[in-house]
Design a protein around this nucleic acid. Sequence first.
RNA 1: GCGAAAGUGGCGGAACUGGCAGACGCGCCGGACUUAGGAUCCGGUGGGGCAACCCAUGAGGGUUCGAAUCCCUCCUUUCGCACCA
Length: 839
Amino acid sequence: MSADYRDSFDLLERKWQARWERDRVAKAPRLPGGREFYCLEMLPYPSGRLHMGHVRNYAIGDAVARFQRMRGARVLHPMGWDSFGLPAENAAIKHGTPPTVWTEKNIATMGEQLRRLGFSYDWAREIAAHRPEYYRWNQWFFLKMLERGLAYRSRRAVNWCGSCRTVLANEQVEQGRCWRCESVVGRKELEQWFLKITAYAGELDAELDRLAGWPERVRLMQRNWIGRSEGALVRFPIVDGAGPGAAAGGTLEIFTTRLDTICGATFCVVAPEHPLLEGARAPATGSAGASAGALGDFLRRIGGRDVSRAGVEAEEKDGVDTGVRVRNPYNGETIPVWTANFVLMEYGTGAIMAVPAHDERDFEFARKYGLPIRTVILPAAGGTPIAGAAMIEDGILTASGPYSGLASGEARRAMLADAEPRGEARGVVNYRLLDWGISRQRYWGTPIPIIYCDQCGAVPVPDADLPVLLPESVSLTGEGGSPLAQVASFVEVRCPRCQGPGRRETDTMDTFFDSSWYFYRYCDPRNGAAPFDPAVAAAWFPIDLYVGGITHATMHLIYCRFFAKVLRDLGLVGNGEPVANLLCQGMVLKGGTAMSKSKGNIVDPDDMIRKYGADTTRLFTLFAAPPEKDLEWNEQGVEGCFRFLERVWRLLMPRAGALAAAALPEARDGSGDARRAALRRKVHQTIDRITTDIGRRLHLNTPVAALMELLNATQEFAKDAAPGDDPYLKEAGLTMALLLQPFAPHVSEEIWESLGSEGCAALAAWPAADPAWVREDEVEIPVQVNGRLRGRLRVPPSIGEEEIVRRARDDGRVAAHLEGRIVRKTIYVPGKLLNIVVQ
RNA sequence: GCGAAAGUGGCGGAACUGGCAGACGCGCCGGACUUAGGAUCCGGUGGGGCAACCCAUGAGGGUUCGAAUCCCUCCUUUCGCACCA
């Protein structure tokens, strides 16, 4: 290696990357004995090249993995590819490259980039979702869910992205737009496969409380997404079915969280898609009632409703009287049933009671159509309700028959208890979360293992016939629905049940299916007989640290929790929560915004590696901001990190020969020498500080700062070199090498080796701080008078209050501030501070 | 609109449990070495004041011997949800 770091980094980084591979530094045992640590980063989509967001994500994970390995844990730190998905298919449509070829090429490129960055992955465990040996287990899980009634087929209105030409799950619609391509999402009626995530809604919600290692923010987003609400289902008997769909004698069931307001219900509203209106949906041909025409018109208008339910702004409330009349079971009153655009079929029963006096939306609607508004809740604090607005808070009931005078909470309980035995109402818990639609009308995904038969219906593909392979050489045009439907050799099969003619399902699975369980596969990646060995997974799980972006807070991170619970119920895993600790790293910005091609503000990791090396690139991403905050890319900051490594190099490498020959100091060596003692204290304090920063606080920027301080101190020490200093320099140098390992592993290794150590630093034990050196034998205590700093005293840490106060009075400056005043009290925080309160 | 998080030098950030505000780095200023420096090294760097000292963590109030940290009100920014009955 050259004396100049600038000329050495490329060579030495490659040298150590080869060495790590040869020595299998990152290899995890099949079954960990002793303390295990599963360190995981979200697997990338192989889009072509790494971006800085990946580098940051993986630098964080690798720092922790390397640290834990040196701390003696058996570390599982794997990497793989989320390799099914739309971009591969779009590339095929655009350039004619088969998705497999495009994907494998990208995996090769990006894998090379990851190796060049020196991340310590156990590559023997690499997985890729698009390979049959992986996706066959998607199919297997799907069939298991089908057996348990957790996968089902249903026709319903779903989110449709016209640009991606496929269905999207609710979680994949962000502000009315496609999460991938950002085009406006419409609605479409389709026959789809759904996973019954709602069966676990209660558990998914309740267990959020126990995820102490997750950021509060993510738990909150999930809680809101699941949207648990307690309320009641109430049946309103239909007394007049004059309208088209309903017959008298039936009931209209509504969901409400405000049963206490029911006596203020002046009408009901059903969603335009509600079954009550079934008969009116057909083109109006003179059904009964004057309103039929208006109702028909309305439903036609709503039916063709702007594909873009996107409505960043909600449309104006719009509705019509259906002619149906129902009776309020609580006061016997007959009220009209309307239908309107603001009631959603997907939520609750698709029908509500409208209480305009106590609900903003109902209020707005009643105003517009001149419907009655009746106050039944008075503010608990007294006073009169404000006119011109709905009073939505809880209060005291009025005009509610026997319930008048009760507080809202008691009233809800009492009203429910009274009506339940009569079958008029029952308490329920409702969720906003909907079942997960997984059918995608695309090619590049896992085929859904179902065969349709006219005789037998939807028949699961038998286990023995898995995997259902994706056919190769499919012509992809982006036109005409599911590409697989065009492939006769794929579609046409025998029914496994009756051997009659059948057709394969031609939709593929949402790729979030792939990533919902991949981390179990890492535990046992080559198992051909099962998705993984439960005993092996049990040994590694739960994941000790999962690092990734916040973008998946309500998608991947909720789906994978759902899977964990299903897998638990299948007896494959013991714990329904897969991730113990979650770290959501911030984005990498340039000029205040996320890097993107369209903004032209991309920093290419390869350019950085070429110019500064992998160590500097990693170091900067860790140093520039705490992991969970956004990071502003600043090349001058990168150069600062490069300079730091240069200084480390210049300090230690020219002395390497001498230091290699020197012995390390004995435990108490240097105590009598102020310079040496100061250096040793700094060394051990740095060990102590970095160990807690990474291990307990997961701070990665402050350790880098601490290393810079250690370098400054060591440099200072080396400047006034004295004979016999070498052992102390050696201790500092070797410690620096080890402490650098999580942050700049290549330089770490080269120094470690040059200073005469055997084996890789990556496999060395993390240094232990000697408490005797961490402790200062003299501390500087700030002395305050009335909370203002007036002096500092150098004292032994064990000094008593009386003694330090006596010394403080002797201090000229402090004494000046005590002059002529009466000391009221003194506060001494041992080792920290002295405050003298006067007058 | 509802919910959450965050506001600290010119900049990124530090300050662990309420105890010296501004660690570390960038930038900037000055100096040394140099034909030269955008290399390296040394020194300085929150504001005011020659000084003692005063002011300072978005604004205002409070608790406390002591607040960037805890409480209240407000402002700003970012994020999430957005007719969920």
